[in-house]
């Protein structure tokens, strides 16, 4: 019996040692061990790179532990990678409703909705494909001996050029998303000036989305999204949605 237990323990350790962090995190989450799951999902992000699924599950785990700020951050990151993720959108909406936070339409603000439907990476792929097609079609057009083929190639390369310019414009417009951050600490004050003794403009509950502007010491000037309330927030109280 003792030998069996030792063997079982050794096999379990071996299996866990060899399993990728995502699988380990799934095991912990299924057990309801949210803290362990969070740790394993964070390891998965570190070793396997950012992925929408890991961020979604991480958000779910943070939501279960009541860490609203980090839950919102993880869901926002999931949606940044995969904007059409209905489950993340659903959970984030519910979380915001629970926290009485406004539904922050942070992607592609002031632009048509379909622009936000495609992630920035996908827009870049569109741009890259259009660039390659432009070069290929232009070469075909110039080197082709048939008149009809040349016309078609020129027309297609003009289209590719338009797509390229359009996607470059979209990418430029969406560069502001790099400056979005989520307030992690609870009940942070948006201050009038970047000093500890400054007056409070309003309070920022955990999970609020802010758009960052200039920095000054330990503070950063931020605008609450949605809305136009602006003030200084402590840098260590927030984290950017798109990490560098």
């Amino acid at each position: 019996m003792k030998a069996f237990l030792i063997l079982w323990f050794a096999l379990t350790l071996l299996a866990q040692a060899g399993a990728p962090p995502f699988v380990l995190a799934q095991w912990s989450a299924e057990k309801g061990d949210w803290e362990q799951a969070i740790s394993s999902y964070s390891a998965a992000l570190q070793y396997e790179g950012p992925s929408a699924s890991v961020y979604y599950n991480l958000g779910f785990c943070h939501q279960q532990t009541g860490d609203a700020g980090r839950a919102v951050l993880a869901y926002e990151r999931c949606l940044a990678l995969s904007p059409r993720a209905a489950d993340a959108q659903n959970n984030l909406t519910m979380l915001r409703k629970e926290l009485s936070l406004p539904d922050a339409k942070i992607r592609a603000r002031d632009l048509p909705a379909w622009i936000a439907w495609i992630s920035r990476d996908e827009w870049f792929l569109v741009f890259l494909t259009a660039s390659v097609l432009l070069v290929a079609l232009f070469w075909c057009a110039w080197l082709s001996s048939r008149r009809n083929a040349r016309f078609l190639c020129f027309a297609a390369s003009a289209f590719a050029c338009t797509v390229m310019a359009g996607s470059a414009w979209v990418m430029k417009q969406r560069e502001s998303e790099d400056l979005l951050a989520v307030v992690l600490a609870a009940d942070q004050s948006l201050q009038l000036s970047p000093f500890p003794t400054s007056e409070k403009v309003t309070s920022c509950p955990a999970g609020s989305v802010v758009s960052l502007e200039q920095e000054h010491g330990d503070y950063v000037f931020a605008e609450l999204t949605p809305g136009n309330t602006r003030g200084w927030l402590r840098k260590d109280s927030l984290e950017k949605i798109a990490p560098r």
Binding site: A29, S51, F60, A88, N90, R120, S131, M171, E175
Partner: peptide, 28 residues
């Protein structure tokens, strides 16, 4: 009302992706 955990991991992706690292105008 919460959607369940995802069972599978998907491919690694980029946030601002290449768009954040490579200047599209240079590529253009």
């Amino acid at each position: 009302g919460l959607m369940p955990l995802r069972k599978r991991n998907d491919r690694a992706a980029f946030f601002a992706g290449f768009a954040g690292r490579v200047n599209p105008f240079l590529l253009g």
